[in-house]
Design a protein around this nucleic acid. Structure first.
Length: 422
DNA sequence: TCTGGGGTCCTAGGACCC
DNA sequence: TCTGGGGTCCTAGGACCC
């Protein structure tokens, strides 16, 4: 059996831990730049606030209903997630973290029926007590069925946070009452397609034959189809290395029009990619720099910059990445350019371990010297904070900024911002 | 006026090889 | 007039996830 532990309305719950007076009132958390709603408490969902709604469109609704609004505080959420996962790891030798707020655990050998149910309740209670984050657990034979179970667990209070699908009768009943669009792996497009063919519930879907499913939804659809029947076939490995790493941001208000502004942004995104590469001990061989105008402003001229460069030798060097990103941007920048760029980013690809680098006979950089410099810079930054030492082109942070007018403190990761008791 | 960020996997089609 | 057969590799785009 497999258990799925899913934190309820995770970002909202994190904020509530430090603002307990909000425990029973509506809360939303906004995306970067205070752009869209990306997390909602149950009370906020009940007000009809949809996921992804632009903030400005519902500002009045939020005020009228006294909804607490927070800018996203990823430092806080990341740390709370770490705490949840740490507690959870005590309950099973096999834990696979699937996202910031979800993990699968292997429950084989932990009994069945009532015993398993009791064990689940113990997990939910322990995490709730240890972190203040409410979680729901779904238990079933496959990951996809565990997802189904956890949705039932969230929907009906009677389950007290743990829903178990452990018999053929329960499986059939669960699938018959489950909208196909809510199945893990079935997105909007696939749901439309299946609806068109008369499939409304997960059960309807399981009644089709394999070749039909393959034709409609390719091999990934077949996996979902099998999993719903209790045949486990989705493997989620702890990804040892990411295959691509991206850092991108939207810019506040209308966007940026000056080359120097976008350069500064792109240099910082490249530096962030360098840091992420180093965290997973890897280097990249190519990089894409992109910038584009707002896709919503039909009244303004639109433009997209997208340039990929390759490196002679795989690298994670902050200076090399930042310099290359800026060069790539400049090479695409049109003279007299007056576009308003709303978003930009840097992606690094072709990632390999930093221990297995193929050197280049025609390399012009003294890599040993550069590595010593980078190590010195990293050491200073580790001690004094990220970006204490940086490349000049990264600027002073004044050329562009993110909007985050409702951000809370870093309660758990910064001593200066620790919670105060009156 | 204002509309997020970061990933993975699969397929079709083009370029290229002999 | 008529133009093969069988591969591999790469990329862009579309689908999905949170």
């Amino acid at each position: 059996m497999i258990g799925l532990i899913d934190c309820n309305n995770f970002y909202c719950s994190c904020e509530r831990v430090f603002n307990p007076n909000l425990r029973n009132s509506p809360v939303v958390v906004l995306s970067n730049n205070d752009g869209c709603v990306i997390a909602r408490s149950n009370e906020a969902k009940a007000l009809g606030i949809a996921m992804g709604t632009p903030f400005y469109q519902i500002r009045n609704l939020l005020e009228t209903n006294k909804v607490a609004v927070f800018s996203s505080n990823y430092t806080l959420y990341g740390d709370m997630s770490r705490r949840v996962m740490m507690l959870l790891s005590d309950f099973s030798p096999e834990l696979t973290q699937y996202s910031i707020d979800e993990a699968f655990i292997d429950l084989n050998g932990f009994g069945n029926g009532e015993a398993l149910h009791t064990y689940g309740k113990k997990i939910v209670a322990t995490i709730g007590r240890g972190t203040g984050i409410p979680v729901t657990m779904g238990i079933a034979q496959t990951k996809t069925l565990a997802k189904v179970a956890s949705k039932y667990g969230k929907k009906y209070k009677g389950y007290e946070g743990v829903c178990l699908i452990d018999s053929e009768e329960k499986r059939i009943k669960a699938l018959q009452g489950f909208d196909i669009a809510d199945v893990w792996g079935i997105g909007r497009k696939h749901a439309e397609k299946l609806n068109y063919h008369g499939i409304r519930t997960a059960w309807d879907f399981t009644q089709k034959n394999e070749s039909w499913v393959r034709k409609m939804l390719t091999v990934t659809g077949v996996r979902t189809w099998k999993e719903l029947q209790g045949i486990s076939c989705i493997d989620i490995e702890e990804l040892p290395q990411k295959k691509s790493i991206c850092t991108s941001r939207s810019f506040a208000d209308q966007g940026l029009s000056e080359l120097t502004q976008v350069e500064e942004a792109v240099a910082n995104f490249a530096a962030s990619c360098s840091r992420k590469l180093k965290e997973q001990k890897s280097c990249c061989s190519s990089m894409t720099v992109f910038a584009y105008t707002s896709r919503f402003r039909m009244d303004l001229p639109s433009h997209a910059i997208n340039r990929t460069v390759t490196f002679p030798v795989p690298t994670n060097d902050q200076q090399e990445l930042a310099a290359s990103a800026v060069r790539a941007l400049r090479s695409e920048w049109r003279k007299g350019n007056t576009y308003l760029y709303k978003k930009a980013g840097v992606i690094v690809w072709d990632i390999c371990p930093d221990s297995a680098i193929q050197t280049n006979l025609f390399d012009t950089i003294d890599r040993e010297k550069q590595a010593r410099l980078a190590a010195a810079i990293d050491a200073i930054n580790r001690k004094n904070g990220y970006n204490t030492v940086k490349v000049a082109v990264q600027g002073n942070g004044k050329s562009w900024h993110l909007k985050c007018e409702h951000i809370t403190r870093q309660y758990t990761t910064n001593l200066k911002e620790i919670i105060q008791v009156k």
